[in-house]
Design a binder for these strands. Structure first.
Length: 325
DNA sequence: GCCCGTCAAGGAGTA
DNA sequence: TACTCCTTGACGGGC
């Protein structure tokens, strides 16, 4: 018996409250290549990267002020970092001090940070070039974490990959290709069930086999399952976190509407969320819930206001609570 | 200062 | 086989 579960809320990458604090300003390769002076263009990329990281520090200060203890960093901190035409660019050299500052602030204030690279990381790709590009993207994330002074363990979540007309074979290809992933990067990874191809059961199979923590996405599960009930698999999800230094993490969002079920709504439906909370209460010491809503931090604030109204919810601070049923 | 086309990526789905 | 769509935030030309 575990006792009470502490639930904590986090949000994704940017704030709708802070002005001019984008962590993902960018320059496309097309624009970059139109600038004749390559040196000048590269310095511009570096200025953008520094600004993005400094904006992350502003975001963390905002989080601290609202007792928000975990946060997903944008994967677009350094524009074109993994672009093949910028091979050899020492982007780390240009942002090292800022990364250290970001990491220090997070550590001092005990803010959990992680990444979610977009769906172009495809470990099970049959095409070796796509696999290589995926490794490059993961190495970029690894370097950012390393220079923030953070242990990269379980800080990067993504999906199992494509189906390629044969889901079983493609699932096995993930396991084969996993052996080609450097061990430092393996340790960084968490796997999430997706909304089109790989269900909770598929992910559990792989996570148990390869000892990878599973990030359960309830919304994806509702959009994509083959009859399995998440409640029946929950204990297995919890077990995939047994060896992690970090608490279990999951993703929470609500469908935009019936027609666009897979799209994220502006806010999170509190009833759906509390239904989940009730079911997992007591199963594990802590659950970190990443709010994936269009209204970002505002969705978190709104959810907290609604939680405060509920008789069974006991707030611990402005973003964490216990369920007393 | 707002609108809208453009940019980037890999896979799924359709013709 | 070839295309369009999906997703996301940001850029930047045009008015």
């Amino acid at each position: 018996m575990v006792g009470m579960t502490l639930f904590r809320l986090g949000y994704v990458a940017m704030s709708v409250h802070l002005q001019n604090a984008s962590p993902s300003q960018t320059m496309t390769y097309k624009r970059f290549s139109q600038i004749r002076d390559v040196e000048a263009a590269t310095r511009k990329l570096e200025r953008i990267a520094v600004s993005n990281i400094q904006n992350c520090i502003r975001l963390l200060k905002h989080n601290k002020a609202h007792d928000i203890h975990f946060f997903r960093l944008s994967s677009r901190l350094v524009p074109l970092a993994t672009h093949e035409e910028l091979e050899g660019w020492d982007y780390i050299g240009a942002i090292k001090d800022d990364l250290t500052e970001l990491g220090e602030f997070a550590k001092e204030n005990k803010i959990r940070m992680d990444f979610h690279p977009d769906h172009f990381v495809v470990i099970n790709a049959p095409d070796k070039e796509i696999f290589k590009t995926s490794m490059k993207v993961l190495k970029y994330h690894y370097l950012l974490l390393h220079h923030m002074g953070l242990d990269p363990m379980h800080r990067c979540v993504f999906h199992l990959g494509g189906r390629y007309q044969n889901k079983e074979k493609s699932l096995e290809r993930f396991i084969e290709n996993w052996a080609l992933v450097p061990s430092g990067i393996q340790k960084m990874v968490m796997i999430e069930n997706d909304d089109t191809s790989y269900t909770l059961s598929d992910c559990l199979y792989v996570c148990e086999k390869l000892n990878i923590p599973l990030v359960f996405d309830l919304h994806h599960h509702l959009a994509n399952q083959e009859g399995e009930k998440w409640e029946e698999e929950w204990e297995r999800v919890v077990k995939t976190w047994a060896h992690s230094p970090l608490p279990l993490k999951m993703h929470i969002s609500s469908p935009k509407n019936e027609q666009e079920f897979k799209s994220h709504a502006d806010f999170v439906n509190v009833d759906m969320f509390l239904d989940f909370v009730k079911k997992v209460e007591g199963s594990v010491e802590q659950v970190d819930c990443m709010i994936e809503a269009k209204q970002k931090d505002e969705a978190l604030f709104k959810l907290v206001e609604e939680l405060k109204e509920h008789p069974h919810v006991e707030m611990q601070d402005e973003s964490s609570f216990l369920w007393k049923g």
